[in-house]
Nucleic acid binder design. Sequence first.
DNA 1: CCATCACCTTGACCTGAATCAAGTCTGGTA
DNA 2: TACCAGACTTGATTCAGGTCAAGGTGATGG
Lengths: 240, 240
Amino acid sequence: MSASHTPEDVHDRCAHCVGRRLSVCSSIDDCDLAILANESSRMTVADGRSFIEEGAPANDFFVVTGGRVKLFTLLPDGRRQITGFAEGGHFLGLAASTSYAFGAEALGGATLCRFPHAGMQRLTERFPTLEHRLREEASRELALMQARMTLLGRKTARERVATFLIERCQHLEKPDLSRPVELDLPMPRTDIADYLGLTIETVSRILSAFKKEKLISIRSITHITLLMPERISTIAEGME
Amino acid sequence: MSASHTPEDVHDRCAHCVGRRLSVCSSIDDCDLAILANESSRMTVADGRSFIEEGAPANDFFVVTGGRVKLFTLLPDGRRQITGFAEGGHFLGLAASTSYAFGAEALGGATLCRFPHAGMQRLTERFPTLEHRLREEASRELALMQARMTLLGRKTARERVATFLIERCQHLEKPDLSRPVELDLPMPRTDIADYLGLTIETVSRILSAFKKEKLISIRSITHITLLMPERISTIAEGME
DNA sequence: CCATCACCTTGACCTGAATCAAGTCTGGTA
DNA sequence: TACCAGACTTGATTCAGGTCAAGGTGATGG
């Protein structure tokens, strides 16, 4: 799985990677990319395949370089909480001390870049700004989680679904809530439900209600248009 | 508010602080304590007083040096989610990019050590292991939050209260679930409810039910004994 | 072109926790 | 010692969202 290419190859692998633009890798200079590439390896995960096992020893960090991934925790009887969706550029594996606090699996296929902890440590020793960047990443994640705890602990089903839709908007390259927004929801209803702490039936009903209220239009299961994004945003904040 | 003491004073302030043992400050050598102390300042917060305002510009980190603190987020209509309780040694302020993602207030009075971001940056530049320590702290916190999201999204009221009791045990110096455990619950029921995403009535009812089932005994409002900690732990995991 | 399967929607009903409304207990004060 | 205020408990009732049970839909393959 480890890199066995020429220096040009490995340099290029990082140079053209989304992680290079979006993720922690951006804190490394161009000239040092080969070092970065040598500490990491590419991997592909098929749809629905798991690549982080909750509770397993945490030996690697990952950067999502393509496709999508879902992160979750399980209760012994199978109840599942999806703690996040991750796509290109997202850094995974900070929520772990010795073992992973979450499981992860591909959502429609994903490519990842894997950094063994030992290699990451060599990198942070060599590039101290990387360590700072990791902390920033953790802080960003922590701030998101605060908001999600409020969603799960205190918001109504309607507010949760509205929040989810607005979150999806904000993942777009150019978020603009002042006009209709076309959204792609690549995850099945089950995943949306497990993300929001609801059942699929409730998610479905609320989307139908939004449709009836002309807040959204449902072009297909995965394709939704927010007709009044600002009203949805108001609902999401619990102000309606 | 900044330190204006003799070097011995400031050295001593850090040398005898709980943060010295428990928090990120442990990554600094004894001989450098004066530097640490010079970048920080002590403050006292009275019961119920707020010292971090959600959404305010994040200018400081804090270490809880005494007493207790609660962290929370609010919805516009006043609904509150308590995202954590913090006590001696706990590091605060990582869940922020430019502004704080949470508010914080003292729970029965607290003393804090404040580190302005600029000072912390000087410290991390001088002591690179400190940056690593901050990341570890963030990772620990992230792992906790994963579990809390599962609690809020997927556990029943009974499971939530049981989880809360078990969490309290684990904050004890010597956690041992094999025999009865005496617990002190220094927070009012309102705070427990807002932490668990429930109402005070539900929390109260479930504690009463646990009492009737001889799982706990309630010596006073703040003083509870877990008679069968392992059964409570089983309930907490959703396995009963 | 139809059958199948997986996923989604809709409806009817149920239930766990919220809400509303009394009590009760506690510690502080006079 | 009695009073009071605030925090907690308990009971009655309601309701949001879950559960159970049919349908619908759309992609795939024969």
